[in-house]
Design a protein around this nucleic acid. Sequence first.
DNA 1: CGACAGCGTGAGAGCGCTCCCACCGGGTCT
DNA 2: AGACCCGGTGGGAGCGCTCTCACGCTGTCG
Lengths: 359, 359
Amino acid sequence: MKTSPPRPLRQVTARSSPTLEDLAVAAGVSRSTASRAINGGDRVSPEAQAAVDRAVADLGYIPNRAARSLVTRRTSSIALVIPEPDVRVMMDPFFAVVITGITEALRETDVQLVLLMSRTDDDSSRTLRYLRGGHVDGAIVVSHHKADSWARSLAETGLPTIFIGRPWDTTFDVTYVDTDNVGGGRLAAQHLAGIGRRRLATVAGPADMTAAVDRLRGWKAGLAEAGLPEGPVVHADFTTDGAAAAAHRLLAEDPDIDGIFAASDLMALGVLEALHAAGRTVPGDIALMGYDNHAVAETAATPLTTITQPMVEMAVKAGTMLLEEIEAPGSHPEPVIYSTELVERASTSVAPTASAANA
Amino acid sequence: MKTSPPRPLRQVTARSSPTLEDLAVAAGVSRSTASRAINGGDRVSPEAQAAVDRAVADLGYIPNRAARSLVTRRTSSIALVIPEPDVRVMMDPFFAVVITGITEALRETDVQLVLLMSRTDDDSSRTLRYLRGGHVDGAIVVSHHKADSWARSLAETGLPTIFIGRPWDTTFDVTYVDTDNVGGGRLAAQHLAGIGRRRLATVAGPADMTAAVDRLRGWKAGLAEAGLPEGPVVHADFTTDGAAAAAHRLLAEDPDIDGIFAASDLMALGVLEALHAAGRTVPGDIALMGYDNHAVAETAATPLTTITQPMVEMAVKAGTMLLEEIEAPGSHPEPVIYSTELVERASTSVAPTASAANA
DNA sequence: CGACAGCGTGAGAGCGCTCCCACCGGGTCT
DNA sequence: AGACCCGGTGGGAGCGCTCTCACGCTGTCG
C-alpha cells in the first residue's frame, strides 16, 4: 500500500508461519471469509470453504492463538490448580489419575491444560493472580485443606471453577465433584461389623480435611447402624509413619480391639507395621481396612481390604462440567458425588492368613 | 480524539481488567514508559518507576499475556509432552515426579507448564501441530518408545526441546537427560554376584525402549565383569502380570537359577508372585532385585532390593536446561546422565526371611 | 560558546486475529 | 412491481501490548 515510508512494513522473518492474510490470498478470498471458514464455516459458501481448506493444507496454516485470544478474550486453556503438592499428594496415583481424567475430558476439544502448583504462600498468590489475569478460561481446583482460603477469592472472581473434592467452605457459590466419603466410611464399618468384629477403632485422617472428616462421619454412622459403640478414634496425617504412631497409641489405650479402619491405604500400611511390631496378627487378631484402593493395598504383606472410588470418572466429570460452565456461564450445577465400593482382600478375611502366622 | 464516528470507540465492558493505557494514565506517564517500567525498568527514571509501581498496585494491573505474546512471539509457557500415557506410565510415581521437578525448575520464572498427553496417533499429530504452532516456547518430551518417530520431526522444527530419557533415535540433534540405566543394570549384577549368587537370570523390559535396553546391557556387562555367564534373558512389558508370565517361562527353562534381576519393581512383584506360586522362596532359593525404587518395592511381601535414581533432580535439570535453551538458542548442551544407587532390602538378604518361610 | 552525546520520554505503527457493519444479489412476500 | 429479507462477502476497526524512532533536555567536551 503506502510505499512512501522508508522502513519496510514487514520484516520477512525467516521461519514465520503463514498468517490469516496469507491464507486468504492463497484461497482467493478475503481475510474475513477465511476467518469464518476456519471457525466452523458459518455463512460460507461451499466453494469458499473448499478453497480455504485446501489453502490451509497447502500452507500448513495454524492460527495464532495469541492474536485470537486477544480479541475473543478466550484462551482455550484451563488450569489445574494443585495447592500444596506435598509428598503425600505426589506419591498418590491420585494426582496422575486426576490429570488423566481431565485430559480425557478435554480430548475432543482444543482446550489445553495448564498446571498450577503452589507450594508456598507466595506461589499461591501468584497462582491467584494468574487465574484472575484471564490467562485461562476456567480452573479445576484440587481441594484439600481447610486453610485453602484463597479458593473462595478465586470463586469470587467469577472465573468458572470446579473443585475436585468438596471444599471445606461451601458457603460461597461453589460447584464440586467428590466421592461419597461418608458412604465409604459407612461401608468400612458395615464390613468389619459384618465379619463379626465388635471392638472397632479407626485411624482417621486430619480433622481439617473434608475427605477425612466425611469418612469418619460415615464410619460412626455405620457403627451406630450396626448397633456397635463408637469406639476409639485417633487422628493421623495420612502418612504411613504417622499412622503407625497413631496405631501404637490406639493399642496402648485399647488393647482389646479386634478391628481397625484406617482412612487411607498408606495409613493402613503404618497400622499394619505397628500391629506386627506389637505382636498382633492381621486379620487373625485384628482385622484391618484401608481406603483408596491404592496400589500398595494389593501388594502389601497382608493385602488390604479397602474402599475404591471412581477417581477417573470423577476427574472426567470435573473436566466436562468445567467446559459446560465455560460454554454457558451462570448455570450452577449441583455437586456430583460418586459412590464407593468395598474391595475385599486378606486383611479382613475370617480365616488366618500365612502372613498372619508371621508374627 | 476523533469524536465524529457515531459508534463508541470502546464499549465499557463491566469487569474488564485495566489496560496498560489505564495504567499509564493513572501513573501520569505514557504507555511506552509504563511498558518499560513494567518490563525491568530499563531507561526509566526512579520517579516514573515509582509512579508506575504504585499505579500497578492501585489498579491491580495484570499485563495481558495474549497481547504481549502477540508482539514478542513468546508465550512464557512450555509444554510437557507425554506420549502414550498408558496405565503403566500413569501408575508410576514417575509421572508425578517429573511434573514436580519441572514445576520446581519453573518456579522462579513466570513460565507456565502446559500438559500435552497423546494417547492416539490422532492426538499426537495434534500435539505436533500445537507445538509447531508456536503456542509454547519449548518442550520437554518424556521419551519412551522406539516408535515415537515424531520426536524427530519435533526436534526438526527448531523448537527448543529436551528429552527426559534418551530417545531411541539420537542421530538427529537432540539434547536429553537420563539416568544411568547401564550403570544401574551393572549394579544389579554386581550385587547379586556379590552375595554369592551364580546362576543369574533377568526379566528385561521391552526391547524397543532405551531404558530397558540399557539396563540389560549394563546387566550383561556386570555379569561379564564378575566372571559369570550371561544367563537367561526373558523380556516382559514392564507390567506385573507380564513379568509373572515371563518368570514362569524362565523357571521352566532354567529351574536351577538362584538370582533374578527384574528391570522394574512392578515386574519384580510379578516375578515374586510367580516364584511363590512355583514354591520357591525369596531370597532363600532365589534372590530377587527390582529397579526404580517404586513405593511398592518397600511394601512388597518381601521388600525388594532395587535401584534408585534421582528422578526429581533429573526433571529439574530438564526444566532448567530448557529454560537456558530458550534464553540462548543454538547452544546444544551435552546430555546429562544421573547415576544410580543400590537400595538393599530383604529380597536379596543372605539369611532366609519370614516370608520366604511362607512358601 | 556551540556541538554532541546520551538518558528519559512519548508518538505511532503494527503483531494476527475476530467481529461489526455495509454491501450485493436473488428469492419471497404483499 | 416494489419492499423486504437473507445468505454470502469484504472492508475496517481495534483487542493490549512492545518496539522503533524522534525529540527534548542536561551535561561534557573541544
